[in-house]
Write a protein that binds this DNA or RNA. Structure first.
Lengths: 342, 342
DNA sequence: ACTTTTTGCGCAATCGATTGCATCTTTCTG
DNA sequence: CAGAAAGATGCAATCGATTGCGCAAAAAGT
């Protein structure tokens, strides 16, 4: 029915024989407008079914009340939980959220970042793609002092706020746990070392071994993309070693699961013969048999923190000079796959 | 450093002593501008680090190249996979995606829909909240002929495009499968009947029983919100029946898992003593022991279809008169939890 | 009664990109 | 070589909301 163009404040103004400025001010509860006029205008706006045009407002105000999110893949528990946390806070503060996924491709990430910039988001929350090794595209934002918060995959070179987990402690705690459970040769399935996350975790792994005087054997360290396939390949490789490991700390739960499935298939008992611990507490790790020990990565809370930090920065007049880094605690969740001592 | 305001086409025009219109046309490859001028302008734009202001463009063009998505909760496998599918198609077609979650609250859903409208999204993709029993807020869109695609939770009253799975067939196939596996008393854990989805599924369940001349016992049908807790309560209730069931078709994998955990605990063997089938093929259902039979809900593909349909509608001059409903196939995935005949 | 303040509202510019309608050159045609 | 046609670019309005400044009327102060 209502095919005509939207009604604007000018339409309301014309109907009421007043100026558009007054309508605008009335709708924004500007004190310069009398109560009587305000009421009249608001009533008319309602009657005419007026809906503000946020685009126009954004253009004029140089503010979009929108924050952009860049993640490698929406459809992964950690990221979707994180996004959920961001959205919660954003909504409560009157912000919209534009989400894009990089599919772990640098080129797509670049495009997305440009697009979000052109859409004039007020701030950006991003996790780097696995390929990302240059950061010029983020300078669009930093040069204009548009706040950015990086999370999960971050690099030290980046001058921006960061939300991370203590990856060193992750590696340390996971490894220490396996040691304390009596495992002697502990393998580590690590992600690509270009990412600091994985470097730190491996450092924690090494530190724990050293602390407990366990010999470090580089043959027990395998790098990969932590997929199911690669997890399976890794465990095959490890078992074929002259001195195979009796436990593994995997970079994520997915690869730990892959190992578990294979170990069960070849008749190696978990946790008796082989101990496993993963990372990030995917929903499945609790319900598989045996359940997989892991470290909880508080995704939702990280999203909340990221959004709070970003919005605070957006709305503060003065831009913080130093960049804050929030390190989130990760909790070790001991389950069956590593519970040799009970 | 670069603290000054953004450079606009006017800045470029000034530098080159030409008009802004020419710059605009050049950057848009308008044939009315000579190659020489275009090259000069593009070079200058690059040199000055020009970034188009999409907001201004959107306002003028009355088009935002943005589509809005409303889901109950981002952080759920089905929805995040769906969104991922939408985002893929949207990005490829030059659209941004604004995502909001209703948290299954009608009031929040209303706010979101208004906000997306004010942001002038070119189209909307939505799944109703569990509470939603009125639809006036969507009329904002339909009245202005802004296309909407509903998915998953839909109602027949809605005059819009829909992407759904064939819920009747889901119920039918799941139940038929259990019957063919030799189970005799098949329970059904159903969702709230206000939602058509669940009504249809139950109808399918009943139809299958009838077709195979299995007596329908209403005591075996339990309604709930399909959470883990309620799944556990349900199986307790069912087992306490004078004539307990020997199989169950659960409304989702989560509740099926809850049943499984309880059944294992009390020593009832799956699938020998009790058959289980869930719905939606959550990632965990494949990896638990025993693995859970289920029906695949092609979330990602549904997102793809939804986006394709919406974008096609947005970009077609003529608005389709009839509303299309795309019914996606669901495939039964037989796993251990229901494989008595092998 | 006259100045000063306060109150209420309108004018017109602005945000940045787009586009219909000129205008001014060239180039071509007969 | 006049006049038409084609080619290249500029002017100014437009999208809808916001806001600094100004003006008039009403209220307050002397």
């Amino acid at each position: 029915m209502d095919n005509k163009a939207s009604i604007t404040i000018h339409d309301i103004a014309r109907e009421l024989n007043i100026s558009a400025s007054t309508v605008s001010r009335a709708l924004n509860d500007n004190p310069r407008i009398s109560k009587a006029t305000k009421d009249k205008i608001k009533a008319k706006a309602l009657e005419m079914g007026y809906q503000p045009n946020t685009i126009a407002s954004n253009l004029r105000n140089q503010k979009t009340n929108t924050i952009g999110i860049v993640v490698p893949l929406i459809n992964r528990h950690f990221f979707s939980a994180f996004i959920s946390g961001v959205e919660d806070v954003a909504f409560a503060s009157g912000y919209n959220v534009i989400i894009s996924q990089s599919n772990d491709l640098l080129e797509k990430e670049k495009q997305i970042v440009h697009s979000l910039f052109s859409n004039r988001v007020d701030g950006l929350i991003a996790s780097l793609s696995m390929q990302t090794n240059e950061f010029d595209h983020y300078q669009l934002f930093s040069k204009k002092h548009i706040p950015i918060v990086f999370f999960d995959r971050v690099v030290p070179e980046l001058e921006a706020h960061k939300i991370v987990v203590d990856d060193f402690m992750v590696g340390f705690k996971a490894t220490e746990h396996l040691i304390k459970q009596g495992y002697k040769r502990i393998a580590h399935l690590a992600g690509p070392t270009v990412l600091h996350t994985y470097r730190d975790r491996m450092a924690g792994y090494r530190a724990a071994l050293e602390k407990y005087n366990v010999n470090i054997d580089d043959n027990l360290i395998i790098h990969g993309r932590l997929t199911r396939i690669e997890g399976q390949e890794a465990i095959k490789t490890l078992l074929a070693l002259p001195q195979p490991p009796d436990a593994a700390f995997c970079g994520n739960d997915t690869s730990a699961l892959a190992m578990m499935v294979y170990l069960k298939k070849v008749g190696i008992r978990i946790p008796e013969d082989f101990g496993l611990i993963g990372f990030s507490n995917e929903p499945f790790s609790e319900v598989v048999t045996p359940s997989i020990s892991t470290l909880e990565q508080p995704a939702f809370e990280m999203g909340v923190k990221a959004a709070e930090l970003l919005i605070q920065e957006i709305e503060s007049k003065v831009r913080l000079e130093e960049h804050v880094t929030i390190t989130m605690p990760t909790e070790l969740i001991q389950r069956e796959s590593s519970s040799r001592n009970k």
